[in-house]
Computed example of a mutant assay.
Amino acid sequence: MQGCIALGINLNATVEFVIQNYRSRRYRAGNLITIDKEILRLRTQGLTDEEDVVLWKGKGDVFRVGFDTNQTWNLTRVQQAKVQWYKGIWFSGSTPKYSVMTWIAAHNRLATGDRLLQWNAQANAQCILCKSAVETRDHLFFSCPFTEAIWRNLTGKLLGQNYSPTWSQVLQIVSKNQITGVKKFLLRYVLQVSVHTIWLERNGRRHGTAQRPPSLLIKFIDKQTRNRISSLRGRRGTLFNQAMGIWFSSRD
């Protein structure tokens, strides 16, 4: 709106009307100077008898009639190299709220104790679950004795010799082909539900809500996993038809 006022152009004016009636002015803002030059260039070029149409600027500064969401997204952000763990976060059959929480954790952007110290030197950075170490992302998932017990119970049999409570190794396992098929889906899903559940438990304790022991959190994560498997069976091919049996066989 401010740009239209500065240029003296009505918000609903057509291209034809602007080219024919626009009065050039002296501007200081770079974007207004650019628009002024473009209008004058089009006036010199002359108008055609064609009707005005809306065109979308796409890749390579090519204007098209159709709107492309993929190109628009890539043109409006700074693109970075793909991280190796993205396949372990975004996968078929995942639950969005769990994926987003795990994505934030993968970027180490959760407000853990060590990050709170960066904003407030007086903040309590102690892990509220074990009360024996500074709370970092890597400690919380799953080096803390409290959360390691949860992770081991849920994934010990699925991972076997590949079992690890170290965050970087866990991300590597769920992102690469060390584990394949149904087990890979189960590990990815359990990881995300575990991250979400543990973070909520941590926040609840910091705000004085009732504390739940590892056994209750394990039971909750197990139920969420079984519910997800049930919702996917029969709708996503034969892969998920085997998931419930494999999940049951991995439980104590």
Results as ranks from 00 to 15, higher is better:
E50F: 10
A243K: 00
T147P: 02
G66R: 10
N227G: 13
L232C: 05
G3Y: 13
W151A: 07
S194N: 06
K223V: 10
K157Q: 09
T72V: 05
R202C: 10
G88M: 03
H207Q: 10
S164T: 14
A6P: 04
M1H: 09
G160Q: 02
S94H: 06
Y22A: 02
A133C: 08
M244E: 07
R205H: 11
L200V: 08
I221H: 05
M244D: 05
R115D: 04
S230R: 10
T147F: 00
A125Y: 04
F240R: 05
K176I: 12
R152E: 12
I104F: 05
R205F: 09
T14C: 00
I198W: 06
I246C: 02
T225S: 02
G234N: 03
Q79L: 06
A210F: 13
Q178L: 12
G181S: 07
V15W: 04
H207M: 09
S215E: 15
R212C: 08
Y98M: 12
R41T: 09
N70I: 10
A81T: 10
W119S: 12
W199H: 04
T147D: 09
F67Y: 11
M101A: 15
Y22S: 00
F142D: 01
F91A: 01
W119C: 11
S230F: 09
L47K: 02
P165V: 01
R25Y: 06
E135F: 12
G66M: 10
W119Y: 13
L239C: 05
C4E: 09
K157L: 03
R152D: 10
Q118C: 13
L239Q: 11
G208D: 10
Y27T: 03
V170C: 08
S215M: 12
S250M: 01
Q80V: 13
S230V: 12
A6N: 12
A6S: 12
S250Q: 03
R235D: 04
N31H: 15
A111G: 10
I9C: 00
K82Y: 13
Y27N: 06
Q126S: 09
D36N: 03
I9A: 01
E148S: 14
K87T: 07
R28N: 14
I35T: 07
V100F: 15
A133P: 06
N70R: 11
I39N: 06
C4T: 05
S99K: 03
D36E: 05
Y163L: 01
